[in-house]
Write a protein that binds this DNA or RNA. Structure first.
Lengths: 209, 209, 209, 209
DNA sequence: GATGAATGAGGATTCATTCAT
DNA sequence: TATGAATGAATCCTCATTCAT
């Protein structure tokens, strides 16, 4: 998780400073993830990071600022996870399967990320919209590419991209974040979701002629 | 929007009381919708409602309590909107189309509702989960029924229900809440989404034998 | 427990009113006794009394007013209990014994009274002082009378009266209010206290000549 | 008056912090003494201490907490005053005289302390009981020691200790706290009280045989 | 850079009291 | 008389942010 761009006058200049910054970011990620933005307090974060309260302002201008930095980090991390799981020469539907699989695994391993990004809707709407618009764009690109290869319908666009993203996100919510005893394996979830993408819900019964 | 069940000792006993309660709920809906839970304050709400600060506590135990009441109200309202748009004897895919259409219209007309329910994830996680689990269950029932009629694949279940719900929610987010100039009409969005549900994304090209 | 004098315009005029007044006083006695003046609230009292909040002000001008009425009632009750236990023709030390015995029994049976009177020190200092001054005066009279009879030292006065009163009050606190398993019987306490009054603490050893 | 043990995370770490803490304790002592616990407010205290409202919470968790710290301080101070006035090799009755004398002087000089400890009965009953139980125990020890020396009756115990303590407390209330023009000198009060302890109230007249 | 004390605006909540019905 | 809704001043407490060391 690389730190997002921040005011250059806040960037650490020494190794010691870099360590403090990292401790703050880690502590903030945990706090925001566990308690949410409003319940978390700067002093909780600094206490958890093991640094003095005042040190916080050496690295961030405000509570919002560290939250934004975190959202940016995590938004990147989510995208990276998906991107690393796929390669352009995989068959289009296989790409979607891999993307969902990567996302489910990532969400399961970083539950707090999910929460932080979601809370951005209320704390920093800009980046929340930005996050999802970017992802939707990538999916749209993939669908277009699938159409170009002739393996997906042509004409797929933004609408389908948001639909696919919504599916993925809610499956992540249900089967990664809220996973519980007795739930199907992630692999099974991915398979079923991919089948839905492939063939839809309708039965195979030939249309009555 | 009917008021959710609350402590009986807070229920108004007079007509005047009922009016005050309604004013508070309406004001809270606007405030929470516009500013969000944390930015809204009791005094903002009462000022907006035109009642004294103390009157709030005649009807609610806390800021959380009115939020919960509101979420419950709105969760019901959303479900009601979908339910009224469909009837069991419509063809299964037609039902999904109508449900999405109703949801998009509803979300567009009550943007604050969307926001309030979403914020429940952080303010009152219980009801947030409850809301989506309930809806998922209903969709699952519809899919099962579609399978029974032979018009949908058999074996559709919870996974597909969450997928459909996620699709609907994100399309609502994108095309109702975040609607902007130049976006496709809702009708077009619904049509494309329904086609996705019907046939999936794959091209019609027969499988290579 | 008779109600103290109050603003005549608040005195109940009907039988129904008298009943309401009594319910309020009883509820207030319990509430003040259990929770103390500041924890108790008018609404707690009226709820306990089973009357409407507004009805309180039909009978009392304020929270202080009902407290004062109660202190007055109880102050009278305590004095009455002592007075009924003694008669002027009992031997003076016997009178003191009986007074203490009556007080211990009374305190044990009405623990809340003790607390209410004590709290008057902070809520209504006037009546608190008045209460103890009155009692001290009575004790002083008894001691003077004991001196006149020749069975007590002559010259006993206010100082001794306060000393005796303090002794009684603290024995009541310890052995009636804070009574616990394994404490001596009240009778034993009374006997020892009376012996202290009779002979003091010094040993009987004759003064070395 | 030394500060009682408190949460270590609230203990001042710098000299400046120690000064602020002291100012707060002093201001609180005055406020609680003059107005009582419930009339005093945090903002009154901080205003009086000349520090910002928020600074209060740097050192105490709540209004109750500072009250408790104060009671503890003062309870110690009272005991110290008595202890310093006596020495084990004084004659037992002389010890009692000195203890009462010290208490009267102390109460007269620190009227607010009396009030604060008394109010603890309602604000922090635990420490109130603790205070008097501890003192009673010390008196009981002195009486036992007096018995061992043969100058007091043997068999004196807890009952007599509470009796003596009650006398002292009420004499303090009457002649130190509520002192008024024309009252006897403290010395005279002490002498009379000591005579009561020495010989009791009965006349010297030999029992009629 | 690090520390932790100081600040004070802001907000939730309580409750005695008034008043219309 | 009884009722219970309405009022709003008062108070505790939180916490982001500043600042002196």
């Amino acid at each position: 998780m690389e730190t997002a761009t921040r005011d250059s006058d806040k960037a650490p200049r020494t190794e010691r400073g870099r360590r403090t910054l990292r401790k703050l970011l880690d502590a903030a990620a945990s706090e925001f993830g566990e308690r949410g933005f409003h319940e978390a307090s700067i002093s909780t974060i600094t206490r958890r990071a093991g640094v003095a309260l005042g040190s916080f302002y050496t690295y961030f201008d405000s509570k919002d600022a560290i939250f934004r930095a975190l959202v940016s980090d995590m938004s990147d991390a989510v995208k990276m996870a998906a991107r690393e799981a796929i390669s352009p020469d995989m068959p289009p539907l296989e790409i979607e399967r891999a993307a969902l699989e990567a996302f489910l695994r990532f969400a399961g391993e970083h539950k707090e990320i999910y929460r932080i990004i979601d809370e951005a809707e209320f704390v920093d709407p800009e980046s929340y919209q930005g996050h999802y618009r970017t992802i939707a764009q990538r999916i749209a690109d993939r669908l277009a590419s699938g159409g170009a290869k002739g393996e997906m319908r042509s004409g797929l666009g933004e609408v389908e991209a948001w639909a696919v993203m919504g599916m993925n996100v809610f499956l992540g919510l249900r089967y990664a974040i809220w996973a519980q005893e007795g739930d199907p394996e992630c692999a099974a979830v991915v398979t079923r979701a991919n089948l839905l993408l492939a063939k839809g819900l309708a039965s195979n019964r030939p249309d009555p002629v």
